[in-house]
Design a protein around this nucleic acid. Sequence first.
DNA 1: GGTTGCGCTACGAAAACAGTAGCGATAGGA
DNA 2: TCCTATCGCTACTGTTTTCGTAGCGCAACC
Lengths: 89, 89
Amino acid sequence: MQLLDLVGRRWTLRILWELRDASLSFRALRERCDDLSPSVLNARLAELRDAGLVELGDEGYALSAEGRALGQHLLPLDAWARRWAARRR
Amino acid sequence: MQLLDLVGRRWTLRILWELRDASLSFRALRERCDDLSPSVLNARLAELRDAGLVELGDEGYALSAEGRALGQHLLPLDAWARRWAARRR
DNA sequence: GGTTGCGCTACGAAAACAGTAGCGATAGGA
DNA sequence: TCCTATCGCTACTGTTTTCGTAGCGCAACC
C-alpha cells in the first residue's frame, strides 16, 4: 500500500495521533512529540499537508476531513495496541 | 500509543504487511521489501519477534497469532488507503 | 566435492534525525 | 514607540540510523 510510504516514517503516525482530537500550534505539537527537531516536524507537516491529511488554519495545525477519516481507522488499532501492550508486560 | 514506538519506524509496517497472508524466507521477504539491507531487515525482525508479532518457523518467517490479529486491523486501513490513493492522483 | 539456498553479520558511505540558536512577522501593552 | 511574547519556520553541527555490498557458517542435495 502506498500509505506506507507516507506513514512508515518516523513521527508521521505520531503527528496524526497527536492531532486526533484538537488543533495544535507548531510549538505545541512539537512539545507533544517529545520535542522533536523543528526541521523534522516541518518536513513531516509539509508531507502531510501535501497529502491532504493535515492543514494549517487559524487555530494551528489540524486534521483535514480526510485526516479525520484516517484517524477513525486508527482508533480500533489503538484499542488493540492497548490490550497488546497490557498483555506483554 | 506504545505501538507507535514499534510501528513508527521504517519497514516495520511493510514487513507485517508482506507477511499478511504467507510465510516468507528471509531472502524472499527482503526481495518483497524492495531489497532492503539485510542488517535492517534483521533488526526489524528481531524487534517484531521480541514483540511476539512474528516468529520463525520451518517455512520461514510468519505472523504469530497476535501478528495476525494486528494484520486484521490493518485491512480496513488498507481499504481506506486504496481509495485515498486513487482520489489523489 | 561442488552447488544452492538458508539466516545472518560486518563495515564504509549516505541519509535521516537531534539539538540548539535565531530569523521575520504579527499582536498587545506600557 | 519600544518592549515583550508568540507564531511558523530555517540554519547549522553532530550523532544516529539506514543503505549497499560482500561474505560467513550451515545444511541439503547431487
